[in-house]
Computed example of a mutant assay.
Amino acid sequence: MHKISVQELLAEYTQGQRDFCEVDLSEANLFECNLQDINLQGSDLRQAYLPYANFSRANLQQATLQGAQLGNIRLISANLVEADLVNANLSRADLCGCNLAGANLSGADLQGADLRYSNLSEANLTGANLGGANLERATFTRANLSQCNLFRAQSVNVDDAIWDDTTIFPDGYRRT
């Protein structure tokens, strides 16, 4: 994995380059950047600053985004399969149609996020906050929702998910 500067990334992207697999962009400031269709598979974006960026249709499979600031980001139809999003801030993020199968979202802030039609099968959402999130037709097959907050989340169907008495459901109650 090699370190790449934000300036280098943006210059190459502007020239039509989309393949940036396994690059180190840790702590990069990509505020409001438009990087649709970019391929960052296996890349390191730990602690990156990406609010209001547009990563629609991006390939972030197996990317590391631990502690990244992703508030209000657009990740429409993005591939985040097996991505590491531990403690990431995804508040108000647009994740409509996103593939998050097997992703680690433990401790992530997804308050008010749009997860309509997203695939969260086998995702780890332990301790994640999905308060007020739109979960219409989102798939949670075998997703871990222990200690997860779903208070005031919309259109929730977690029948196939793994939850326990620490899971807070949309009505504010815990089930046993």
Rank of each mutant, 00 (worst) to 15 (best):
S121K: 14
A103H: 04
V86F: 05
A103W: 01
A93Q: 04
L120I: 14
R116M: 11
D84N: 15
I73Y: 02
A101K: 12
D109A: 10
R116P: 03
A108R: 08
Q111I: 09
V86C: 10
S106E: 11
N79H: 13
L115N: 03
L80P: 00
R74D: 07
R74A: 08
L95F: 01
G107T: 12
N87G: 07
E122R: 15
A103D: 00
V81G: 02
G107V: 12
N119P: 00
D94C: 10
A78M: 06
G112Q: 13
S91R: 14
G112S: 13
A88Q: 10
L120W: 03
N119Y: 01
R74W: 06
N87A: 15
L115T: 03
V81L: 08
N89F: 05
A101V: 14
L85M: 12
S121A: 15
N79R: 14
E82M: 11
Q111R: 15
E122F: 11
N104S: 14
N99K: 11
A88I: 02
L75D: 01
S91L: 04
A103Y: 01
G97S: 04
G112I: 11
G97E: 01
A103Q: 02
D94N: 15
D84C: 11
S118D: 03
E82N: 13
I76C: 09
I76L: 14
A101H: 05
N99V: 15
N119K: 11
L80N: 00
G107I: 09
C98D: 02
A83T: 09
V86Y: 06
L90D: 05
A108Q: 06
D114I: 05
I76S: 05
D84P: 00
N119L: 10
A101Q: 12
A113I: 03
V86A: 10
L115F: 02
A103S: 09
L80W: 00
A78G: 10
E122L: 14
C96T: 13
N104E: 06
E82G: 02
A88N: 05
L115P: 00
C98R: 08
I73D: 01
A88L: 07
A108H: 03
N104C: 14
L95N: 04
G102N: 04
R92A: 10
A108F: 02
L105A: 09
A78H: 03
S91F: 01
A93G: 07
L120F: 10
G112T: 09
Q111H: 06
C98H: 01
Y117R: 11
L120D: 03
I73N: 05
L85D: 05
Q111V: 08
V81E: 10
I76T: 15
L105V: 05
C96M: 10
A103V: 11
A113W: 02
N119S: 08
L95I: 14
G112K: 09
R92D: 10
Q111A: 13
S106G: 09
A83L: 09
A103M: 06
D94E: 09
D109H: 13
S118P: 03
N79M: 13
N104K: 14
L120E: 01
L80D: 00
A93F: 02
C96F: 07
A83I: 05
G97F: 03
N87V: 12
